[in-house]
Amino acid sequence: MAASRSYFRRWQGGLVLFVGLVALGLSGGVLRANLSEDQINGPIRVIDGDSFEVAGTKIRLHAIDAPENDQMCETEQGTQWACGGWITKVVTDRYSGQTANCTAIELDRYGRTVARCTALGEDVGAWLVREGLAFAYVKYGRDYAAIERAAAKVDRGLHAVRLQSPEQHRRTRGKGRIPPDYECRIKGNISTKGERIFHQPGQRFYEGTGINEARGERWFCSAAAARAAGWRASKR
């Protein structure tokens, strides 16, 4: 009987420890799973330059960062072009429908599985960074840092143009500073005094102005359209 009570106490203590660990994980806001042994295999559906869907699982490629679909780049001659969409097309043309073998590492805060994937006989992240289609995301791992240095040395791909880092672009877009349509870049801002002022690219306050459509602020495709809607031009 004493042995039975001792076993029960050990079992009860283990249960309390298990519950405590789960609670600790949940209290961190994001429960990161140790998925290092999990394998995900199947045909690739490309979402963007660094995100796939494989066998119904959304995959974020480990330790790389590619431009967002709506991101623009600028050539040395000052020409703007939709590099994010172009990269997604290149990745789609190469990998769509190909079989991926992915090793899961963890879950990110969006619920995606962060993983290393191979396809066409090589590491997908390594290929993207080597071709200058993505950057090494060193805050999450230095796996591809040396490959990026080699690509930058010869100005391959993105290293030959000017662009915000994808991470900075996401932050800026989240503050309403990136136009959803590149043809409609004029910012119709409403000041704290309620004055409607529009800012055009190149003006002093353009970059720092964010558009909050919930407040009635708007994007415009032309200065004439902004004036017709009741906005006046910024003086600087």
Score class of each variant (00 low, 15 high):
Ala2Trp: 08
Ala2Val: 13
Ala3Asp: 14
Tyr7Trp: 07
Gln12Asp: 10
Leu15Trp: 14
Leu26Asn: 05
Leu26Val: 15
Ser27Ala: 15
Asn34Ile: 03
Gln39Cys: 00
Asn41Pro: 00
Asn41Phe: 04
Gly42Ser: 08
Asp48Lys: 04
Gly49Asn: 03
Glu53Leu: 03
Val54His: 00
Lys58Val: 00
Ile59Thr: 05
Pro67Lys: 07
Gln71Gly: 04
Glu74Cys: 07
Gly78Met: 11
Thr79Pro: 03
Ala82Asp: 08
Gly84Arg: 03
Gly85Glu: 13
Val90Asp: 01
Val90Ala: 13
Asp93Arg: 09
Ser96Asn: 14
Ser96Cys: 00
Gly97Gln: 08
Asn101Met: 06
Cys102Trp: 04
Asp108Lys: 03
Arg109Gly: 01
Arg109His: 10
Thr113Met: 02
Ala115Ser: 12
Glu122Lys: 13
Ala126Gln: 13
Ala126His: 07
Leu128Ile: 06
Arg130Ala: 15
Glu131Thr: 09
Tyr137Asn: 04
Ala146Phe: 02
Ala151Leu: 05
Ala152Leu: 04
Val154Leu: 04
Asp155Gln: 15
Arg156His: 08
Leu158Ala: 10
Leu158Lys: 04
Leu163Ala: 14
Pro166Ala: 12
Gln168Lys: 12
Arg173Phe: 05
Lys175Glu: 15
Gly176Gln: 11
Ile178Gly: 00
Pro179Met: 09
Cys184Thr: 06
Ile190Tyr: 07
Gly194Glu: 12
Pro201His: 09
Pro201Glu: 11
Glu207Thr: 10
Gly210Tyr: 06
Ile211Lys: 06
Ile211Ala: 03
Arg215Met: 12
Gly216Ile: 08
Arg218Asn: 11
Arg218Thr: 07
Arg218Gly: 02
Ala223Thr: 15
Ala228Lys: 14
Ala228Glu: 14
